[in-house]
Amino acid sequence: MNRIAHRRWRQRLTTALLGLALITANAQAHLLKVFAYAEGQQLHGNAYFTGGDPAIGATIEIRSGDDRLLTSLSADTQGEFSVSLVSLVDPDSDLTVIADSGDGHRAEWLIGASELGSVLDAESVERSATYASASATASTATDIELLALVERAVARQVGPLRRELQASQQRARLGDILGGIGLIFGLTGTLLWWRSRRTTRP
């Protein structure tokens, strides 16, 4: 009787576990993430919990490569934020964007100096454009200006795509769940096998 009940209990538990695993395959996870990209002289970004829930009102800090606090702001109701880089950026410096949801969740996103290069270029372009028109070599100036415009347009188009890619990569997948459960049972099996090998030996 006990053995039957035991087996039934185990069966029900296994079913419940499997059901839970399937239901939650696409459920939101529990991890704060932040993503940001530069578009022209504007830094756009968003903070979210993996699975897509926005981190409403999360504190966003922007720090330079040498960990100096450049500015601090908070995410809006969509978890998004946007800040002008013109006054912030030194040349050749990386930026770190740090999000903090106020309960110990914390996430970082690094923007390399190379990505910011276009921002600074855009600035120098404007400067060189004024020089250029003064010295009447207008054709090169418009070329550079055009290049900056193209870079900005591409950044605007690609930014949201990169954001979506980030979000989908962070989602917990069914494979991860089953993999984790499998590893736990595999580990237990190994332990039991090792134990039984020891006890059956003369």
């Binding site: 185990r10 538990l13 296994t14 576990l17 839970l20 695993a21 239901i23 939650t24 459920a27 939101q28 996870a29 529990h30 919990f49 699975g51 829930d53 981190a55 409403i56 009102g57 999360a58 949801s101 106020g102 309960d103 969740h105 917990a172 769940i177 984790g180 459960i181 736990i184 049972f185 580990l187 237990t188 332990l191 039991l192």
Partner: peptide, 26 residues
Amino acid sequence: RLPQAAVLAAAFFVASLVTVPVGPSS
């Protein structure tokens, strides 16, 4: 007790995926 430990560890592992938002956190 190892098999039970494995079942409960698996349940613990999976249960963390069912998150409910409470205030600013979940």
